[in-house]
């Protein structure tokens, strides 16, 4: 548990009996506390929390191939997709928190859903190692991050097609995780560490969390004109001279 939420829940259990995680008897009035029960945590820039320096280099290269930069919109790297995945893997998602993890583990039909014993964190750790090993053996010792972008695309296509065999991990499974996680980093709210400056939202014209479109619902076939807003607000709400 992070320190802030620990303090919050400690405070809550001291002042009231309706902290979210403990059973309570509710009677006579709606449980109420004058603060949100589950306020979001904001991911900040800073050192890598899950990836090693080598892994991070590979991830930044990968996210820039999955979502390459173009003249109008930055690519996955500048948008913070690798930072997003780093923070996710450090947290509950990486640890498969909440998932059913009791055995026996048996491989079933694909309609029966994933039955892998690996956590998402382990999948990335092994997947990235496998990718570098594969690239080194086919490109004179060079890891993925040192290949040209064309070579990187070609390597990823081999992984996608199942033609690159990794040790101890299903390369195609790793690639499917990337195809899910990288766009999530590009399009989720910037508080999670990706979609920096809302570049993903600006690219498509998604206004974020504005929450109220009553004035626009009947304006048919007219482009919505206002810029996006995120849970953390918008950069231009913070005067430049007060930015640190």
């Amino acid at each position: 548990m992070r320190r802030r939420s620990f303090l919050l829940s400690l405070a809550a259990s001291l002042v009231s009996t309706t902290s979210l995680s403990r059973a309570a008897l509710i009677h006579d009035r709606v449980p109420w506390a004058p603060h949100p029960n589950s306020a979001p945590e904001m991911e900040r820039l800073g050192p890598w929390q899950f990836f090693t320096a080598d892994e991070a280099r590979a991830m930044e290269a990968i996210v820039d191939r999955i979502i390459p930069p173009d003249p109008e919109t930055p690519g996955g790297k500048e948008a913070g997709c690798a930072v997003f995945i780093d923070r996710q893997l450090k947290g509950g998602y990486g640890a498969n928190e909440g998932l059913y993890t009791l055995g026996p583990y048996i491989k079933g039909a694909k309609e029966q859903g994933p039955q892998s014993q690996l956590s998402h964190a382990e999948l990335y750790r092994k997947g990235l190692a496998g990718l570098d090993t594969f690239c080194r053996s086919s490109h004179g010792g060079k890891p993925f991050a040192e290949l040209s972008t064309d070579e990187q695309d070609a390597a990823l296509k081999k992984v996608e097609a199942g033609e690159a065999k990794f040790d101890g991990v299903d390369g195609q499974g790793f690639f499917s995780a990337l195809l899910k996680d990288v766009p999530e980093g590009f399009f989720s709210d910037p508080i999670h560490g990706g979609n920096r400056d809302m570049v993903g939202w600006k690219m498509i014209g998604f206004p974020g969390i504005r929450y109220d479109y009553r004035d626009w619902v009947k304006r048919h076939n007219e482009r919505y004109p206002y810029p996006p807003v995120s849970i953390a607000g918008r950069a231009d709400w913070t005067p430049k001279n007060r930015e640190r």
Binding site: T18, L20, S21, A24, I26, V30, P31, W32, A33, H35, P36, N37, S38, A39, P40, E184, F187, S188, D189, I191, H192, G208, I209, Y211, I231
Partner: peptide, 18 residues
């Protein structure tokens, strides 16, 4: 858990797709 509009999904952060 007990859930309530103002404390559990206020508009300030309810719209979090992830």
């Amino acid at each position: 858990p007990w859930r309530n509009t103002a404390t559990d999904f206020p508009p300030g952060y309810a719209a979090d797709e992830l």
